[in-house]
Lab assay of single mutants.
Amino acid sequence: VAKRKCPDHGLDLSTYCQEDRQLICVLCPVIGAHQGHQLSTLDEA
């Protein structure tokens, strides 16, 4: 199974943004649109 990539940063989608209910990469909460959002690992989601 191919991993999905972040459209903004090109990295694997490895984190779940609880606020926006979507998968994001590790850079999205650091330099992207998900700064300050509640996050979960994929195992927790």
Results as ranks from 00 to 15, higher is better:
Glu19Val: 08
Lys5Ser: 06
Pro29Trp: 04
Arg4Val: 07
Asp8His: 14
His9Ile: 01
Cys28Ala: 00
Leu39Asp: 11
Leu42Lys: 14
Val1His: 04
Gly36Ser: 06
Lys5Thr: 06
Leu11Arg: 12
Leu11Ser: 04
Thr41Val: 10
Leu13Asn: 03
His9Glu: 01
Tyr16Val: 09
Leu23Met: 12
Ala45Lys: 09
Leu39Pro: 10
Cys28Pro: 01
Asp43Ser: 11
Thr41Met: 08
Cys17Asn: 01
Asp20His: 05
Leu39Asn: 09
Leu11Met: 09
Pro29Phe: 04
Gly32Lys: 04
Cys28Ser: 01
Asp43Gln: 10
Lys3Met: 11
Gln35Arg: 07
Pro29Asn: 08
Arg4Leu: 08
Gly10Met: 08
Ser14His: 11
Cys25Gly: 01
Cys17Thr: 01
Val1Pro: 06
Tyr16Glu: 10
Ser40Ala: 12
Gly36Pro: 02
Arg21Ile: 03
Val26Asn: 15
Asp8Leu: 15
Cys17Met: 01
Gly36Ile: 02
Glu44Pro: 13
His37Ile: 00
Ser14Asn: 15
Asp8Thr: 15
Ser14Thr: 13
Asp20Ile: 02
Cys25Ile: 00
Cys28Tyr: 00
Gln35Thr: 10
Ser40Thr: 08
Asp12Thr: 08
Asp43Leu: 06
Cys17Asp: 02
Gln18Phe: 06
Ala33Ile: 10
Gln38Ile: 09
Cys17Leu: 00
Ala33His: 10
Ser14Ile: 13
Leu42Trp: 10
Cys6Glu: 00
Gln38Ala: 10
Ile24Ser: 03
Ile24Ala: 06
Arg21Trp: 04
Gln18Pro: 10
Leu27Met: 14
Lys3Arg: 08
Val1Arg: 03
His9Tyr: 01
Asp8Cys: 07
Asp20Ala: 02
Ala33Arg: 11
Ile31Arg: 12
Leu13Phe: 05
His34Ile: 01
Leu27Val: 05
Val1Leu: 04
Pro29Asp: 08
Glu44Thr: 13
Gly32His: 03
Leu39Gln: 14
Lys5Phe: 06
Leu11Gly: 05
His9Leu: 01
Ala33Thr: 13
Ser14Cys: 07
Gly32Asn: 03
Leu23Gln: 15
Glu19Leu: 07
Ser14Asp: 12
Lys3Val: 08
Arg21Thr: 10
Gln35Trp: 05
Gln22Lys: 14
Ser40His: 13
Val26Leu: 11
Ile31Asn: 15
Cys28Asp: 02
Lys3Phe: 06
Glu19Trp: 05
Gly32Asp: 03
Pro7Gly: 05
Pro29Tyr: 07
Pro7Ser: 07
Gln35Val: 10
Leu23Trp: 12
Leu11Ala: 06
His34Trp: 00
Ser40Gln: 13
Cys25Phe: 00
Leu42Phe: 10
Cys28Lys: 01
Asp12Ser: 06
Lys5Asp: 03
Tyr16His: 09
Val1Ser: 11
Gln22His: 09
Ile24Asp: 03
His34Phe: 01
Ala33Asp: 08
Gln38Thr: 14
Glu19Asn: 10
Ile31Lys: 15
Glu19Gly: 07
Glu19Gln: 08
Val26Gln: 15
Ser14Tyr: 13
Val30Met: 12
Asp43Phe: 05
Asp43Thr: 10
Ala33Cys: 09
Gly32Ile: 01
Asp8Ser: 11
Val30Leu: 08
His9Val: 00
Gly32Arg: 03
Asp43Ala: 10
Thr15Val: 04
Ile31Cys: 07
Leu13Gln: 12
Thr15Tyr: 12
Ile24Val: 09
Cys28Gln: 00
Val26Lys: 15
Asp8Gly: 04
Cys6Met: 00
His9Pro: 00
Pro7Asn: 02
His37Lys: 02
Glu19Pro: 04
Thr15Ile: 06
Arg4Phe: 10
Val30Ala: 11
Thr15Gly: 07
Thr41Asp: 13
Gly10Ile: 03
Asp20Lys: 03
His34Thr: 02
Leu27Glu: 15
Cys28Ile: 00
His9Gln: 00
Leu27Cys: 03
Cys25Pro: 02
Asp43Ile: 06
Gln38Tyr: 05
Gly36Lys: 06
Ala33Val: 09
Gln18Ile: 09
Lys3Asn: 09
Pro7Phe: 03
Thr41Arg: 13
Leu42Gln: 15
Arg4Cys: 04
Asp8Arg: 10
Val26Met: 11
Thr15Leu: 04
Leu11Glu: 12
Leu11Lys: 13
Gln38His: 13
Glu44Phe: 06
Leu13Ser: 05
Lys5Leu: 05
Gln38Ser: 13
Arg21Glu: 14
Cys28Thr: 00
Gly32Pro: 04
Cys17His: 01
Ser40Arg: 10
Gly32Val: 02
Arg21Gly: 14
Glu19Cys: 08
Lys3Glu: 13
Gln18His: 14
Leu42Gly: 15
Ala2Pro: 07
Ala2Arg: 06
Ser14Phe: 08
Leu13Pro: 04
Val30Glu: 13
Tyr16Pro: 03
His34Glu: 02
Val30Phe: 06
Asp20Phe: 00
Gly10Glu: 08
Ser40Trp: 05
Gly36Asn: 12
His37Asp: 02
His34Arg: 02
Gln35Ala: 09
His9Ser: 00
Gly36Gln: 07
Gln38Leu: 08
Cys25Tyr: 02
Val1Glu: 09
Asp20Met: 02
Lys5Arg: 05
Glu44Arg: 10
Pro29Cys: 04
Lys5Ile: 04
Pro29His: 11
Pro7Val: 04
Val30Arg: 13
Ile31Glu: 15
Arg21Asp: 15
Gln18Glu: 13
Asp43Trp: 04
Tyr16Asp: 04
Pro29Leu: 06
Arg21Tyr: 12
Gly10Thr: 03
Lys5Pro: 03
Gly10Phe: 04
Cys25Glu: 01
Lys3Leu: 07
Cys25Met: 00
Ala33Trp: 05
Leu42Glu: 14
Arg21Gln: 15
Leu23Ile: 05
Cys17Gln: 02
Gln22Val: 10
Gly10Cys: 05
Leu27Thr: 04
Gln18Thr: 08
Lys3Tyr: 06
Leu39Trp: 10
Asp12Asn: 08
Asp8Asn: 09
Val1Asn: 07
Pro29Thr: 11
Leu27Asn: 15
Ala45Gly: 14
Asp20Glu: 10
Leu13Ala: 10
Ile24Leu: 08
Ser14Ala: 12
Pro7Trp: 04
His9Lys: 00
Gly36Ala: 06
Glu19Ser: 09
Gln18Cys: 10
Arg4Ser: 09
Leu39Tyr: 06
Val26His: 11
Cys25His: 01
Gly36Trp: 03
Cys6Leu: 00
Val30Ser: 12
Cys17Gly: 02
Thr41Ala: 13
His34Val: 01
Asp12Lys: 07
